[in-house]
Design a protein around this nucleic acid. Structure first.
Length: 568
DNA sequence: GCCGTTTTCGGCCCGACTGTTTTCAGTCG
């Protein structure tokens, strides 16, 4: 045991949460193989739940093991799984999984992930046709062997080939802003369909997750309606996966999957809650219902056979003794306990903002950019702009900074907006322009010496949309006493929630901004930034640009008041 | 395998759709 403890101590020194990922992966694989084996479904679910919980855990499992903490305190973890977590952290492997691998190949996981092939069919394919891999599956389907199996037919075989050819959705998650474009177009089409009363988008889209895997449409309609027909007949539908009286699933040419549910008016609230999720939140709410003798499903809240709520979401929450919980919080990450205690945060809204943040790249002319941002800001009823001039790490040509500052000030004044202006230094900057500004900002890509006089910090990093990047905590801490600038640039969205969550935990104030990019028809970047702040439980008081200009000036002047004149 | 405002045993969300059946299992969300 001493040896194992020493090993885990070494692992615990790494600051990432690699152990969590590893444990979640092992539990997920055990769940898959137990399911193929036909084991007790609740046992399978226990592994799957634990994998999900641990994958989203904010703490490092390796560190917890090293510190000898009681792992059974973790949600979904009992004596048995606690032991397996220690085993995986200490040895990197798990005997239970090795045992399953003696019977079932690891690659069977891929086979059962093919749409239309689940654990039972994967087992049949393995036992009857020795299908171990996707290549085996393709070969068997091509040779028309699958149609001969019990429970399969020619259609199933065809569907498997289609799935393997990548026809049934790309599986890739779409950035929220991009999904919004598809979503709004379909929404308009559904609203125009005969008999439709109301159409909304639920799911992770409504929870404002930075990326969405599919779009869940919910429609209330009269008994006879054309909602399903409107969806399957939409021009960019590539495949119809399911089409019934009350639900349909299609895949668009872009690869985006669309699910549609049609419910009666009295069920709207229950259905909206049900299809907004998250799954973990729903299960927790249904549990509360069970404790009160209530059954909650997408049609309503029922005591025995009698419907007691469901027309509105508020009525569903009220039935289990809770106030309305905003969709962005519904992740079963403490929102239910907070709601019960009457301690839900008053989330920031777009209407709370009084100013926007504009970034002016060194290579751009300030006046055009700032004018466009000022026009947009006026249209939203904002009062001021924070104009941040990016200073390149190395200046190749002489830049007339006073002229740029002046041009931006003019552009704001012309639109009746106040402006606070700052220079944003790259952390590698060797030089600092000599010009009078209201504040100094800094952009950081990794932990370094943040300029002590920087009042506003912005974290920049790789632009891969799917990558949340490393733990932002050390970087965010550099903004203590200053403010963290968060810009709703679509490609950066997945990084914002962790940054904002950390900012809140560390007591760092934030500035939410559009960056001033010309938005065109796409979703407003300011609203995208706000959506991620809401997911991070941020309240208006934590948002600097929800305050009047004078207060903002004071906040930004706290640091480096003596350094207003940036430069030597 | 986990968990407890009916519980340390007996539950664990559940309804829609498809394909293959001839009354239902498997899959999905």
């Amino acid at each position: 045991m001493a040896r194992a403890a020493a090993k885990s101590h070494v692992r615990a020194d790494s600051s990432d949460r690699a152990a969590n990922t590893r444990v979640a992966a092992v539990f997920g694989e055990i769940a898959d193989l137990l399911e193929v084996e036909g084991q007790n479904p609740f046992r399978v679910r226990a592994y799957r739940n634990a994998a999900h919980e641990l994958g989203a855990l904010g703490r490092d499992l390796a560190a917890m093991v090293a510190a000898g903490e009681d792992l059974t305190e973790l949600p979904g973890v009992g004596e048995d799984l606690a032991g397996k977590i220690c085993e995986i952290v200490d040895t990197g492997s798990c005997a239970a999984l090795d045992e399953l691998h003696a019977t079932w190949p690891a690659s069977i996981h891929d086979v059962m992930r093919v749409p239309g092939v689940g654990p039972r069919r994967a087992r049949t394919l393995f036992e009857r046709l020795a299908v171990r891999t996707l290549a085996d599956l393709h070969a068997a389907a091509t040779k028309q062997q699958i149609r001969e199996l019990p429970g399969f037919g020619a259609t199933s075989e065809r569907n498997i080939l289609d799935a393997l050819a990548g026809l049934l959705g790309t599986g890739r998650r779409l950035p929220l802003a991009e999904a919004r474009v598809h979503g709004e177009r379909l929404l308009a089409r559904l609203r125009g369909a005969p008999g439709v009363i109301e159409a909304v988008i639920a799911g992770s889209y409504r929870r404002a997750l930075a990326t969405v895997g599919d779009l869940d449409f919910l429609v209330t309609a009269r008994a006879k309606n054309g909602a399903i027909a409107a969806l399957v007949g939409a021009p960019d539908v590539a495949h119809v996966l399911a089409e019934g009286d009350t639900r349909a699933t299609v895949v668009l040419r872009s690869g985006l999957q669309i699910d549609l549910r049609v419910v009666g008016r009295d069920s709207f609230g229950a259905a909206l809650h049900y299809f907004t999720g998250s799954k973990a939140h729903n299960i927790a709410v249904r549990r509360l219902g069970v404790a009160r003798g209530l059954k909650i499903n997408e049609y309503g809240v029922f005591r025995d056979e009698c419907r007691v709520a469901g027309r509105t979401e508020e009525s569903v929450f009220a039935a289990v003794g809770l106030p309305f919980i905003p969709p962005e919080l519904r992740e079963n990450r403490g929102e239910i306990a907070a709601a019960r205690a009457g301690e839900l945060p008053q989330l920031v809204t777009s209407a709370d903002l009084r100013g926007d943040l504009v970034l002016v790249p060194a290579k751009s002319e300030p006046s055009g950019l700032v004018t466009a941002a000022a026009v947009a800001a006026r249209a939203r009823g904002l009062a001021y702009l924070l104009v941040v001039h990016e200073v390149p790490a190395r200046s190749h040509a002489a830049v007339d900074w006073p002229a740029r500052i002046h041009a931006a000030a003019e552009a704001c004044a012309e639109r009746g907006l106040a402006a606070l202006q700052g220079l944003e230094l790259d952390m590698a900057s060797k030089t600092c322009p000599e010009v009078v500004v209201d504040f100094v900002a800094a952009r950081l890509s990794h932990v370094a010496h943040a300029p002590a006089h920087a009042a506003l910090l912005r974290l920049v990093g790789p632009t891969r949309a799917s990558d949340e990047g490393p733990d932002p905590t050390p970087l965010v801490r550099l903004a203590l006493g200053a403010a963290l600038a968060v810009v709703g640039e679509p490609a950066q969205l997945p990084r914002l929630e962790p940054q904002l969550r950390t900012a809140r935990a560390e007591g760092v104030a934030v500035v939410l901004g559009s960056g001033g990019e010309p938005g065109g028809g796409e979703a407003s970047r300011l609203d995208l930034a706000v959506s991620q702040a809401r997911r991070a439980w941020i309240e208006p008081g934590e948002v600097v640009n929800s305050r009047p200009l004078a207060e903002v000036r004071a906040v930004l002047a706290r640091r480096g008041a003596s350094r207003r004149r940036a430069g030597p």
